Simulated assay, not measured.
Amino acid sequence: MLHIRLEALCFIIAKAREFQAKEGVVIPESPENPSDDWAMQVLADHGNDYSVREIQDTLAEFNGRQRAELIALMWLGRGDYDIEEWEVAVDDALGDLSVRAAEYLLAHPMVSDYLEEGLIAHGYYCNE
């Protein structure tokens, strides 16, 4: 069960799609150095981007469980977890990742597609 309103999820998906459709957004396949905080580096160049700020503002209103669910939703849509492992995925997303959820999510090139697939796995759809 999701603890995030569908409207908020669809808004985040739409804004992530807008952000990553812009020219100049380059997301590395993998970090150059394992100790690099590449999610923060990706967004450092786009800190003034309106779509990024809207996502960050929306996630600032989420509690830790909701941010963890958003990350778990991406993992579910990406195939890292099955729907039967939902609570495990949410538990795994709690902590540092959920605190930096916007940065972590936007550092993944196909986040909007993954989130949408995760929603579908839960039986929900965004009406566009």
Results as ranks from 00 to 15, higher is better:
residue 2 L to I: 08
residue 2 L to M: 07
residue 3 H to V: 09
residue 3 H to A: 10
residue 4 I to W: 11
residue 4 I to V: 13
residue 5 R to K: 13
residue 7 E to M: 00
residue 8 A to N: 11
residue 8 A to S: 10
residue 8 A to T: 04
residue 11 F to Y: 10
residue 12 I to V: 06
residue 14 A to E: 00
residue 14 A to L: 02
residue 15 K to E: 01
residue 15 K to M: 00
residue 16 A to C: 12
residue 17 R to V: 02
residue 18 E to R: 08
residue 18 E to C: 04
residue 19 F to K: 04
residue 20 Q to I: 11
residue 20 Q to P: 04
residue 21 A to F: 05
residue 24 G to E: 15
residue 27 I to N: 03
residue 30 S to Q: 13
residue 30 S to V: 02
residue 31 P to Q: 05
residue 31 P to D: 07
residue 32 E to S: 15
residue 33 N to A: 11
residue 33 N to R: 14
residue 34 P to N: 14
residue 35 S to M: 13
residue 35 S to A: 11
residue 35 S to E: 12
residue 36 D to H: 15
residue 39 A to G: 08
residue 40 M to A: 10
residue 40 M to D: 05
residue 40 M to Q: 08
residue 41 Q to C: 14
residue 42 V to L: 10
residue 42 V to C: 06
residue 44 A to Q: 14
residue 45 D to M: 12
residue 46 H to T: 10
residue 47 G to E: 11
residue 48 N to F: 07
residue 49 D to M: 01
residue 49 D to V: 00
residue 51 S to Q: 09
residue 52 V to S: 01
residue 53 R to V: 10
residue 56 Q to M: 10
residue 56 Q to L: 08
residue 57 D to F: 13
residue 58 T to C: 12
residue 59 L to Q: 02
residue 59 L to S: 01
residue 64 G to I: 06
residue 66 Q to S: 08
residue 68 A to Y: 15
residue 69 E to R: 00
residue 70 L to H: 14
residue 72 A to E: 13
residue 72 A to T: 13
residue 72 A to R: 11
residue 72 A to V: 12
residue 73 L to T: 00
residue 74 M to V: 11
residue 75 W to D: 09
residue 75 W to N: 07
residue 75 W to A: 11
residue 75 W to M: 08
residue 76 L to W: 11
residue 76 L to C: 12
residue 77 G to T: 03
residue 78 R to V: 05
residue 78 R to P: 00
residue 78 R to I: 02
residue 79 G to M: 13
residue 80 D to S: 15
residue 81 Y to M: 03
residue 84 E to M: 02
residue 85 E to L: 06
residue 85 E to R: 11
residue 86 W to N: 03
residue 87 E to G: 05
residue 87 E to W: 07
residue 92 D to W: 02
residue 96 D to M: 08
residue 97 L to W: 07
residue 99 V to W: 13
residue 101 A to T: 01
residue 101 A to Y: 11
residue 102 A to G: 04
residue 103 E to M: 06
residue 104 Y to L: 01
residue 104 Y to N: 00
residue 106 L to R: 03
residue 107 A to V: 07
residue 108 H to Y: 10
residue 108 H to I: 08
residue 110 M to Y: 12
residue 110 M to E: 10
residue 113 D to T: 07
residue 114 Y to L: 07
residue 114 Y to T: 02
residue 116 E to W: 00
residue 117 E to G: 03
residue 117 E to W: 01
residue 118 G to Q: 05
residue 119 L to D: 06
residue 120 I to Y: 06
residue 121 A to K: 09
residue 121 A to C: 08
residue 122 H to N: 10
residue 122 H to E: 09
residue 122 H to G: 04
residue 124 Y to Q: 09
residue 127 N to S: 06
residue 127 N to F: 06
residue 127 N to L: 04
residue 127 N to D: 03
